[in-house]
Each structure stands twice: as structure tokens, then as C-alpha cells.
Amino acid sequence: MADEQKPEGSQVPPPAGGEAAKPAPPKPAAAPAPPKPPAVMAATPWDSDLAREIKERFGDRVGETSTYLGQNFIVAKPDAAVSLLEYLKLEADFDYLVDITAVDWPKRPERFDVVYVVYSFARNERVRIKTYIPEGFKLETAVGVHLTANWLEREVFDMFGIEFEGHPDLRRILMPEEWQGYPLRKDYGILQQDDRWVRENLGIESGQ
């Protein structure tokens, strides 16, 4: 699909014939070895008053405060995530919760990243809060701080099976309620489905 420009012909014509036989590209340059990207993200420390204040206030409940590609993020201990959201909302004007999502890293002991994105209208700034949790860990709900967390957490629960303690209505939101399995986990295959649900509710053997 990446190749949609086919102005003339369809296949690459062999370089033989034509002008001066092969245009003789220097042999070593012909092997394009893309520079190996670093396996970890190269973030730099986030230098700001807010970051210092958060460090001071939360001590070791907050890990790194970093900047990557001009975007700031804070790594918090799982039990500090919601109090950090509350602090940012009440005392630093980050009054808008944009998004909650998760990332599954199956090989890591703390399997999931849960990511909160908050925005401040007053500062016109965005901050991400990341927290790492193992499977089965119940995070505190953020509904008490931002109402919008209601659906966002339901989606995270629906897709990853991460539960939120104290959530008023923790049900699946996009998938059918009786569905088994959490589709966005890495061990859930792309063609996988809940065969039983499909059989019983759609009356077909497979949706594939």
C-alpha cells in the first residue's frame, strides 16, 4: 500500500541498457543500514517550577519528571496517580482531563502503563501522568476528580481488564457486556474472538 504512485508502467524496469549501463553507485553506499534506534526512549529531565513543586510535595511517590519531544510527563506510583491529578487540578490549573489509556507490555513485571493526559486552559500546557501497574492491580478511580474519567476508565477496563477501585459503574463500554477476554492486551490475537458469544448471539460459527 505504501506504493501508490505508479505513473508509468507498474514494475521497476531493470537498470540494464539505457544510459551508460549501470549508473555505478558506489558499492558500500548501496547497503542502506538504517541507524539502529535506541530501544528505550531518550527523555530528558523536565526542568520547571511545577516539576520541582511536585517532587517536593509527593517525594518518592513520584518518579521521573521528564520531557520527550517537547512533551512533559510524570511517572507516579500507582497509589499517587489520582492524588497527583487532584493536585494538578486544584493547585496548578490542570483542570481538564483529556484522556486515560493504557499500554500493555507483557514482558515487564509491571505489565501495564496507565496514562492520564491533562490539559490546562490557563497555561495552555499538557502533562501526561504515567503509572506502571502489575496485572490484577486495582487502581483508584479518578471519577471523583474528573467526571469524564467515568467512560475513559470503562474503556480501559473493557480493553485491558484493568479495574478501578470505587468506579461507580465499571462495565464494558464498547464490547458486548458478556464478552470474554480483553482485546487490546498483547496476548489477545488479532483474529481471536469470543467464539461462544458469537455463536450464541449472532448464530454463526465465526465472524472471521
Partner: peptide, 19 residues
């Protein structure tokens, strides 16, 4: 060669995250 590489295996993106 670059064309072949991009079409067959795509390009690598440095590890990281962005919003």
C-alpha cells in the same frame, strides 16, 4: 534498495511515545 525496504518491511521509528 530503499524503495524495496520501505515497501517490504516499512521503516523503523525510534522508541518513544507522543501525544
Amino acid at each position: 534498495i530503499y524503495h524495496f525496504k520501505i515497501v517490504t518491511e516499512g521503516f523503523r521509528v525510534p522508541a518513544g511515545e507522543v501525544y
